[in-house]
Simulated assay, not measured.
Amino acid sequence: MSMTVAERTLLIESIQTALAQGTLETGEAVRRLRVEVTGLHQSQFAKMCKISVRTLVHIEHGEGNQTLKSLNAVFRPFGLKMGVVRIRREVN
């Protein structure tokens, strides 16, 4: 699973865009980043992010009420953090 830096950057940007557009849920984005970019198992990734495996599982499954600190911890390795985005309104 060898990716060039450019490929990794494009993948991260595509996931970030899908999140911002609302076409990808936060948990699925985290799972895709973990699997497709790092190739790590949940236990390895959780250890790297300094969170529990249980917290990671809850984030990936969209369960519970995650803290901003936990969410930022899983996004940080990819140069991302949670933020506020403008809602796109449909023009009729």
Rank of each mutant, 00 (worst) to 15 (best):
E90M: 09
R8E: 14
S2I: 14
V35L: 14
L11T: 10
V74N: 04
S14L: 09
L33R: 06
V37A: 13
Q66G: 00
N65G: 03
G79K: 11
I12E: 06
N92K: 12
T23L: 11
K81D: 08
G64R: 10
Q42V: 06
R32G: 01
G39D: 13
L24K: 11
Q21Y: 05
T17E: 15
Q66P: 06
K81Q: 13
A73F: 06
A46T: 05
Q66L: 12
G27A: 12
T23A: 07
I15A: 03
M48D: 10
L11H: 08
L68V: 15
I15D: 02
E60V: 08
M1C: 03
V30R: 05
A18T: 03
G62A: 08
Q42I: 08
L68C: 07
T4H: 12
L33P: 01
T17Q: 15
P77N: 11
H41C: 01
L24H: 06
H61R: 15
G22V: 11
V35M: 10
L71Q: 03
L56D: 01
R54H: 02
H58N: 14
N65E: 14
V74R: 07
A20Q: 15
R8W: 03
R86Y: 04
T9H: 14
E7I: 03
R34H: 10
I51N: 04
E60Y: 08
E90R: 12
T4G: 07
L19P: 02
N65C: 03
A29Q: 09
E28T: 10
M82G: 04
L80C: 05
V30Y: 05
V74A: 02
L19I: 13
L11W: 08
A6I: 08
R88A: 07
L10M: 14
G39F: 14
E60G: 02
S14W: 04
L71W: 08
Q66V: 03
T55Q: 13
N72E: 10
H58I: 00
K69E: 13
A18F: 02
T9L: 15
K47S: 05
R88L: 06
A6G: 00
V84P: 01
E28K: 14
F75H: 05
L11S: 04
S52V: 06
L80H: 06
A6E: 15
G22H: 13
V57I: 13
R88E: 11
P77Q: 09
S14K: 15
K47P: 00
A46E: 09
C49P: 02
N92C: 00
V91C: 03
Q42A: 10
R31Y: 14
I51W: 05
